[in-house]
């Protein structure tokens, strides 16, 4: 029964949601089921928080390697939780907005969390450079084509690209670097993307059918089939 009941729910809800796409009288079901999921997800927050405290608490108590990081995690977790729950430093009473200006929660969010998040995001620029360096080495024919296309697009996005080929006559304007860059993005690139998108669509339908028909059951912790 541990497997059969979730499977029966999956099959019932799956077919119901397929019908909701084609039969207008039940079209609102999709939205309603999303709401059910959101309600369940709220309770799962406790699950996540509990797991975090348990894992790091255990690490701390048993003095496992890097246990000092767990202190930072737990202090940050409980401090933020207390600031939000008890509205520490809020200008108004307990009914005021948790993110009100001047509250400890807002101060920590704006001055600690946001700069740290922005720092992580900013690393992307450096990683893009290092990944591009590795990807754009002309090791074989495919890599050389990739390198050439990337070079044209990079150059086409700069004023230099327009300047280099601005002398071309109107009849050859397609060969101007900015136009060439636009053509690469809007023709071969878009065609490739659409092919992948069609494949993804079919994959989603196939995967969904496997789930709805009960062929694929590993998400239930069952090897399936």
């Amino acid at each position: 029964m541990r497997r059969e009941i979730p499977l029966a729910i999956t099959i019932f809800v799956g077919f119901l949601l397929i019908f909701s796409v084609f039969f207008p009288p039940v079209e609102d079901l999709g939205e309603n089921f999303s709401l059910f999921f959101d309600i369940i997800a709220v309770f799962a927050f406790f699950l996540g928080g509990g797991n975090l405290v348990r894992i790091h608490g255990k690490k701390l108590l048993k003095r496992k390697p890097d246990w000092a990081f767990s202190i930072v995690t737990l202090v940050g977790f409980f401090l933020m939780l207390a600031a939000g729950l008890f509205k520490i430093g809020n200008p108004g009473d307990i009914s005021s907005n948790v993110t009100a200006e001047g509250s400890l929660f807002a101060i920590m969010y704006d001055n600690i969390f946001k700069p740290l998040g922005a720092t992580m995001y900013a690393l992307l620029a450096f990683f893009v450079a290092s990944a591009s360096y590795r990807a754009f080495r002309a090791k074989n024919r495919e890599a050389t084509i990739l390198l050439s296309a990337a070079f044209v697009i990079l150059l086409g996005s700069t004023p230099l690209g327009a300047l280099l080929t601005s002398w071309m006559p109107d009849s050859l304007s397609i060969l101007e670097i900015p136009n060439l860059a636009v053509w690469i993005l809007s023709s071969p690139n878009l065609a490739g993307q659409r092919a992948i998108i069609i494949g993804i669509g079919l994959g989603v339908v196939s995967m969904s059918l496997r789930l709805i028909l009960g062929v694929e059951r590993s998400y239930l912790g069952d090897e399936g089939a």
């Binding site: 992948i196 494949g199 994959g203 196939s206 496997r210 694929e216 590993s218």
Partner: peptide, 11 residues
Amino acid sequence: LIGEELYAASA
């Protein structure tokens, strides 16, 4: 795994 290969992978 590009796109739908992700869904094919489990099978």
